[in-house]
């Protein structure tokens, strides 16, 4: 690990001020992504601004009102996963958090940090390999290498790394928004679906956040579909593993007919992936196996497998079908 400066910030404004806009600074919350990558010499910040003291304020709180949910960015994953209102009114969020990582990590990790976790692409995590994300222009070792865990949607010629998280899928499905503050330009609101950028030819730029921009909260609007929602995560073992494929689904049903469907996919895409074509395919249809299958086909129509990850295409389709059929059966 390279030497770095460390500073604690008591307030959000203080954190932003301390970070500046130079780009060599990283905020640190739970540190479960950042310290790991620093030890691997992948991330090399010169300064860390510790935002944990700010968790005493609104950034550490969960508020559930009629109009929606407000999750402070420094709330721990475990706390949000176990929050009663989140569990009953937004089960897809509670489940996405509960099925992530391990209890120990969930106790440490913050919601803001979770959204910004980095890919698990092993070539990215080991500095001896070429990797366009870590070292722009060096090439992509995964493209023709070991890529079982890589993405089939949203890929580019420069990078096929999958976005590894779970929580963001639930948020993208529910039209969540992140609130941020910046030193210059002040606060802003960014739709979660706009937060992460597909790799294109700049895979090193993963989000639209500016250097030194701090996420302060996540808001989720209430909607008739949030109660009939779930997160289905398929993985190689029953716990403590990243998704091979996952689906966050929310349904608003009129009897058996779909008024609205919300679907986001994980494990198979470079960013938290909203499957709008699938949603459109379901709207107005009777929620049955055939409709679910048609939606799944629509969602994966543009999939581009590459070597070891071809199985993710049929797997993702089955995941969508299973999640939709399970959601239909939910008691709300």
């Amino acid at each position: 690990m390279r030497p770095f400066q460390y500073e604690r910030a008591d307030t959000l404004e203080g954190a932003v001020k301390a970070a500046g806009t130079g780009g060599a600074t990283q905020f640190i919350a739970g540190g479960t992504t950042l310290s790991d990558l620093m030890k691997l010499d992948v991330m090399r910040p010169e300064r860390l601004v510790d935002v944990n003291p700010a968790a005493g304020g609104p950034a550490g709180r969960i508020e559930a009102t009629k109009s929606g949910l407000r999750l402070g960015a420094m709330v721990r994953m475990a706390e949000a996963a176990e929050h009663p209102a989140v569990k009953t009114d937004y089960p897809v969020i509670a489940q996405a958090l509960q099925l992530a990582a391990s209890q120990q990590i969930r106790n440490m990790a913050s919601l803001g940090g979770n959204l910004l976790q980095r890919t698990r692409c092993e070539y990215f995590r080991q500095v001896s390999w070429p990797c366009n994300k870590r070292e722009p222009g060096s090439g992509c070792a995964a493209m023709d290498g070991v890529n079982r865990l890589h993405a089939v949607l949203g890929t580019s010629d420069a990078c096929i790394a999958s976005y590894p998280g779970d929580f963001a899928q639930a948020l993208v499905a529910l039209d969540a928004v992140v609130e941020t503050v910046r030193e210059k330009g002040g606060a802003r609101r960014i739709a979660l679906s706009d937060l992460h950028r597909p790799p294109g030819d700049t895979p090193q730029v993963e989000t639209v956040l500016e250097p030194g921009e701090l996420i302060t909260a996540i808001t989720v609007p209430a909607g008739p579909w949030t109660r009939r929602s779930l997160y289905l995560k398929i993985r190689d073992r029953d716990s403590y593993a990243f998704a091979l494929a996952s689906a966050a689904v929310a349904l608003d049903l009129d009897g058996e007919v779909v008024r609205e469907a919300r679907i986001a996919l994980g494990g198979i895409a470079t960013v938290p992936w909203r499957a709008r074509e699938a949603e459109a395919a379901l709207r107005g249809k009777t929620m049955d196996e055939a409709a679910a299958t048609a939606a799944a086909e629509a969602a994966l129509a543009g999939a581009q497998p590459r070597g070891d990850n071809a199985f993710k295409v049929p797997l993702a389709k089955q995941t969508i079908v299973r999640a939709l059929m399970d959601a239909k059966r939910m008691e709300t």
Partner: peptide
């Protein structure tokens, strides 16, 4: 069901050199 060290065949190098991606069963399994 779980264990496999993945080898990059071009370079003859191991890829999943950690216990997050080299899977063994956890209690839930």
């Amino acid at each position: 069901l779980h264990e496999k060290t993945e080898i990059d065949r071009r370079a003859a190098r191991y890829v999943n050199k950690n216990i997050s991606e080299y899977l063994v069963p956890v209690n839930a399994d």
